[in-house]
Amino acid sequence: MPAVLPRPRENRCRDALLGALLPGVGPTLPGLGQLDLSAFWQRFEAAAPAHLRLGLRLAVVGAAVLAPVLLYGRTLPALTEDQRDAVLQRAAGWPLLGPLLDVAKVVACMAYFADAGVQSAARGQ
């Protein structure tokens, strides 16, 4: 897939999307946006098949760029947390974007529970 955005900007949008998908969970579990995911992304880029990486990038373009621009005139990183969540709730019902958000959610969950601290805290619940 050709780059729709410069890569650093796309990564900021990706991080904003995944952080909005999985915000803080109760008092003991952090939000995905609070974790250092650099090791995860390195491994993901090396191991994930092309169609999964493409699905994630399409989800980023759709839910972190197109949908928020349509709804608020700005991309997801520029929105407040309330606005980001509102974008997700709307976009989840859109025919093409809903399934792409499912893909992003799977990746978000993989990233979240790949963190040893999160695994340990969650299993201790």
Binding site: A20, L22, P23, V25, G26, G31, D85, L88, Q89, L101
Partner: peptide, 9 residues
């Protein structure tokens, strides 16, 4: 997705 999903988690 988002906050409703976090409540499920």
């Amino acid at each position: 997705f988002g906050r409703p999903f976090a409540r499920e988690l």
